[in-house]
């Protein structure tokens, strides 16, 4: 692992509080994930790739915006690994970069419909912007 990857890995581990070494590679997180079909990298791969230090691949993948943060993987993981928190830490590293915002406020009006609750908008802004 080069020092840049090492540094990125360190940041993800610190921000998420996740101990990837607890993973026993059972795949239950990916077995339970409701967003599996929409993701390029799946929850168990996040955990494993973070362990390997492959953070950039994850940061550049749309998978980080597809995670529903539903915490099913967190509560069902037999080892207490908390994959969703790892995904979130990677996503935050991506949106915190300069020009890393995934969603711009000016895009929102076009996406709205009259029934859409405010909750959807504030959540999206929180998830996709720094």
């Amino acid at each position: 692992m080069n020092s840049k990857n090492e540094n990125l890995k360190e940041q993800v581990l610190r921000a998420s509080g996740v101990n990837v070494l607890k993973c026993m590679r059972c795949g239950k997180c990916s077995g339970t994930c409701p967003a599996y079909g929409e993701m390029e990298y799946h929850p168990h791969q996040f955990v494993y790739m973070i362990e390997k230090g492959d953070i950039e691949k994850l940061m550049n993948s749309p998978s980080i915006y597809r995670c529903l943060t539903c915490f099913a993987c967190v509560d069902r993981c037999p080892r207490g690994v908390e994959p969703a928190k790892a995904v979130e830490a990677v996503r935050l590293m991506a949106v915190r970069k300069q020009d890393g915002n995934r969603l711009k406020p000016e895009q929102i009006p076009d996406m709205l419909d009259e029934d859409m609750p405010q909750q959807a908008i504030v959540t999206a802004l929180r998830k996709y912007r720094k």
Binding site: P34, G37, Y65, R102, L103, I108, M111, M116
Partner: peptide, 17 residues
């Protein structure tokens, strides 16, 4: 189980399915 609405701006397909 999650209804998928969280990512409605990003991936409406999920919310529908």
């Amino acid at each position: 189980e999650c209804c998928g609405a969280y990512t409605i701006f990003e991936d409406k397909n999920q919310a529908v399915e």
